[in-house]
Design a protein around this nucleic acid. Sequence first.
DNA 1: AAACGCGGCAACCGCGGGGGC
DNA 2: GGCCCCCGCGGTTGCCGCGTT
Length: 291
Amino acid sequence: MGCKHADKPKQKHKKGLWSPDEDLKLKSYILKHGHGCWSSVAVNAGLQRNGKSCRLRWINYLRPGLKRGMFSVEEEETILTLHGMLGNKWAQMAQHMPGRTDNEIKNYWHSYLKKKVAKIGETEAQAKAEKSSSASCLESSPSSMKSNPPTSTIESTEQLESSLMSDAEQSVSQCQMDLPREACRSNLPRVLFAEWLSLDQFRDQNCESSGNPVVATNNLVYYNSDFQDSFMHDLLLNEGTFGGGNHQGLSNGAVDDILPPALKFEDQILENSFVDFINGRFSLTSDDLYL
DNA sequence: AAACGCGGCAACCGCGGGGGC
DNA sequence: GGCCCCCGCGGTTGCCGCGTT
């Protein structure tokens, strides 16, 4: 916003796949200047692309902190649950899955999960039909027919769902405002810190160590920007003790390294991979980061 | 070895919302 | 108030790689 609608001679924009050279141009430009107005990014970075295309490329591919690669079982369950609650709100789903883009989630759904859900639903319906026909049952049980995702999945992620409820129906930021601090805090995922520090390491630890329920919420990180703001505020107030354990590495000087990204990011980005990592994890939209 | 079909993924398109002029 | 532009989102398309015939 606030971008001048100006200086743009109508030129033909390039389409199709991005070349490594274009990627490099776009990435280095944004890391240096931020994106601001996307249409000017395209021009200033020397790309024959339109702003929309640049934005998409950045968000889906170039942005730091993207996970890429296979979806884990936890992520899969998260998607199923979220889809059951939100429907095709891919962007909202992506907010709960750090490192994943809406496009990625959408593609995964259409290419794999949708079929999986249909298949499970089919077999369950079949089983149900057999059951009811054999046992000429008396009761009709509409409550057992949860609309979309298979109950097996739902059951396995009940915790996830219940914690999601508050977000989907009232939004996290509202929680931050309306509920007592402690109440909100109890919902906050400790895993968030693990994501910052070392996602994979943390996950491995938890996976290996006896089915700790925190794994189920591993991907359920409130990535909403309002949340981030208030969260960082809390982090400051509590000197990095927000949410308890698991984040020793952050609590001291590291917080200072993160907090003023606008001041430090640009200088450090090329040489400090940690800052790069933190910023990537910390802002999915990247708007906060680069402005 | 070539042709074909399929699935996954990246990118495009169209629409709606929001903000500036 | 209306128009224009930008942004973000969701749906869709098209390319490419891989497996099968």
